[in-house]
Nucleic acid binder design. Sequence first.
DNA 1: TAGGCCATCTGGTCCT
DNA 2: AGGACCAGATGGCCTA
Length: 273
Amino acid sequence: MDSDTSRVSSRPSSPEGDDLFLSSVKKSVGFSGAVSSTQIDSSPELRVTDLQGVSSADEDAVTLKMLSKKDRKLLSETELQSMRLKINSRERKRMHDLNIAMDGLREVMPYAHGPSVRKLSKIATLLLARNYILMLSSSLEEMKRLVSEIYGGGSGAHHTSFHPSSCGTLTHAAGAPLPGHHAAVSHSSHPVHHPLLPPAVSTAVSLSGPGLSAVRPHHGLIKAPTASAGTLGAGFQHWGAGIPCPCSMCQVPPPHVPGMSTVSMSRLTSDSK
DNA sequence: TAGGCCATCTGGTCCT
DNA sequence: AGGACCAGATGGCCTA
């Protein structure tokens, strides 16, 4: 959702000017080593976004990286510079890939897409994604429960016939939402259709959530979370209709929404050492 | 002008 | 050894 056109265009997350920079560097600097690596990389005009095409510099960097740290101290300015440039290039590429992934996440988020809409910030994207996943998980659970009640014939229709319609699940599709609930959501300019709900109960996934109070609302697109937004850890919040209901009946933990601690990221676990 | 967001550089650490 | 990952620092752009 590259909605922030002005910003995106003026400051693309993807280094598209690699070739241009490469040529400019070759021209103006020529890898003579006359300019420090800091100067080269920091200068907008001389920024080298991808030096992997520079075979000579690359070879130097590879060769130099085989040397010990002691040896590196003895390296010439040019050699160190080449090394730095290559490392910087890799880091840029890594961050570029991260931004691509972030854009991909934005695209699937229930948020207004369009050239006139500002792009979600990274933190907002992550938090919205989290809330969205929680909402979907809750909805799925509710679906399962409903299906089991319908076809299972169980007597435990604990609240199929009566339940706050604000829960925003299929159970309440025919009901009118509670005023309070909707008031809490109402990103009315960016309605989001609940993936499991008919348009009549479509809702919006709010960014309000743990830590979000510190996130600046995106320039009017995202209403600043109200003080009513509690912590997710204490239970689901009423981010809005369609958001997991906090009532005792609905407050079923999502079918194992993997928290950060359980995500199979060896890196994360190893970091706790 | 202040503050938010971002890209980039950089040095360090960890993993393969 | 080489690369990935991370976090701090820095500076630019944009909006309120």
